[in-house]
Structures are given as C-alpha cells and as structure tokens.
Amino acid sequence: MYRFLLTPRWLGILALTLVAAAVMVLLGNWQLDRYEQRTAVNERIDAGSRGTPAPLRDALAAPTGGAGSVGPAPAERVEWSRVTATGRYDAANVVLIRGRTVDSKVGFEVLAPLVLTDGTAVLVDRGWVPPAPGGAMAMPQVPALPTGEVTVVGRVHPTEPGGAGVDRRDGRLETRRVTVDKIARKLPYPVHGAYLLLDEQTPANDPAFRAVPIGHANNWQNFGYVIQWWLFAAMSLFGYGWVARREARRAAGLDAPKEPVDRAAEPATPA
C-alpha cells in the first residue's frame, strides 16, 4: 500500500517535511535558550532585592586607565546585586537621560558621577524627574546634589547598548541612553564599567525623584514560543503521515467515493 512513498515525488515531500520540522525544532531550542537566559536575569533581580549590599569593589573592578576610560563590565553573577559606595558627587557633570518613561510619563533620569577616594567614579542614577512645562524634552528642574561625603546603596546596572552622542546643554550633559563608555569620554576621571540604580542614600535623596523601576524580562513569552515551534514541528510530521495514509487508502480503493443515488429511479412512496 505504501510503495508510492518511494517515488521521487513523495521522497521530495518527505525531505521538505523533515527539513521544515528540523528548522522548527531548532527555533524552539533557540527560544528555550532565551527563556533560560531571561529566567536567570529575573532570578538575579529578585535575589538583588533581598541581598545585603556588598562593597562596590567586590562587584566591579576599578578602572585602570586615565581620564575618560572605562573599567571592565560586571560579571553576570553581580548584575542587579546591591552594592554600597562612598564618595562625593560631581555637580559639574550631571547627566540627563531624556525620553525615559516611568508610570507612563516621559521625563528624564538624572545621573551623577560619584567620585571615590581613589579618584575613579561610578555613575549613580538618582531617579526620574518630569520635564518642565513645554513638552517632554523641556529641561527639568533637577534637585541640587548633596555636598560633602555621600554614601549610596544601589543596584549594579549593566551599560545600555547603542546610544547616541553625549551633548552639553545648559551646563549639563544630555544623552538618550546610559551608555557608560560614551558618557565617560566627557568626564575628567576614569569610570567604572556599570552604573548604579539608587536604592538608598545618606544623606537622603531628594523626594522629588521617583525611583526607577527594574522591569522583569518577559521570559514566559519565550516559553510560549518554545511550545509553539515544537507543536508546529509535530504537526508537520503528523500532516505528512495523515496525507500519506489517505493516499494509500485511496490507492487501495478503501476510500473510494460512494456512487450517488439516483432518486429519480426510486419507486414512488404510496400515499
């Protein structure tokens, strides 16, 4: 019944089906890898919210270059962990990150370099402020930095990819993304290879700032894609088998269509 499967036509259909199924399985495996990566990020975020702050030096290696250089990026295991650092804010090099959304409102995140005793600095994201009246890009009112020694506790945030140039406007640096290496080029000291999302500060941070929320990665979307691609692979194989079986039954006459009944030839039913 199934000798027709060895014909060139059916061998070609089988080859295409197997290739399609293999590609779908590989796509499912790729999404599974993405799911595991995002799950690991979410676990680090959750662990960081509960962890005891460690000294900055335990999480980030200090930069060793000159002014404008950047230190090594943090290891994955310390991303989103809580660290503490003490230094003095550099009020001359505040950085505004425009076009940032908190609670569905567009405004600015405000970064300030915290200069440490060794002469290096780490960028600290103090929080979010709304723009001034006049539009989302209007220069905001930024609360003054505390003077003197400051101790901060914050989450280690890896540098953001891409990003445009860094410009100076009204005495402040301004850019679109927190790309540490590009910001560091505008600063007169070496900078650590990640920045800190402020959790706590001594003296206390100005209440005008809103804390920048840390969003969890949507790992369940990737898991849904895993199921989707694997189901498509199974359906393609099932579809090939179903079509082959139907063809075999048709060739064997098992699924021959029934002859239509000629109603006109039937005797009339007596009244």
Rank of each mutant, 00 (worst) to 15 (best):
G134M: 01
G135L: 01
G135E: 03
A136T: 13
A136E: 04
M137N: 13
A138T: 10
M139H: 14
P140Y: 00
Q141L: 02
Q141E: 10
V142I: 14
A144M: 00
L145I: 06
L145N: 07
P146F: 00
T147H: 13
G148P: 07
G148T: 12
V150L: 00
T151V: 14
T151R: 15
V152P: 06
V153H: 12
G154W: 07
R155M: 12
V156A: 05
V156T: 10
H157E: 14
P158W: 10
E160G: 05
G162L: 06
V166N: 04
R168D: 02
R169V: 12
G171F: 06
E174W: 02
T175V: 08
T175I: 08
T175C: 12
R177W: 05
R177Q: 14
V180C: 05
D181N: 13
D181Q: 13
K182F: 02
A184N: 10
R185M: 10
R185F: 01
L187K: 13
P188E: 03
P190C: 01
V191T: 14
V191G: 08
G193L: 02
Y195M: 00
Y195D: 01
L197Y: 14
L198A: 09
L198H: 07
L198N: 11
E200G: 11
E200C: 14
Q201C: 11
P203K: 07
N205W: 02
V212Q: 06
V212S: 03
P213K: 14
I214H: 12
I214F: 04
G215S: 15
N218E: 11
N218F: 05
Q221L: 14
Q221A: 11
F223S: 13
F223A: 15
G224S: 07
Y225R: 01
Y225D: 06
V226P: 03
I227W: 10
W229P: 04
W230P: 06
W230M: 07
F232C: 10
F232R: 07
A233W: 08
M235Y: 11
M235S: 13
S236I: 11
L237Q: 13
F238Q: 05
G239Y: 06
Y240N: 07
G241Y: 01
G241A: 04
W242G: 04
V243L: 15
V243T: 15
A244D: 02
R246A: 07
E247R: 09
A248H: 06
A248L: 09
R249Q: 13
L254C: 00
D255F: 00
A256S: 02
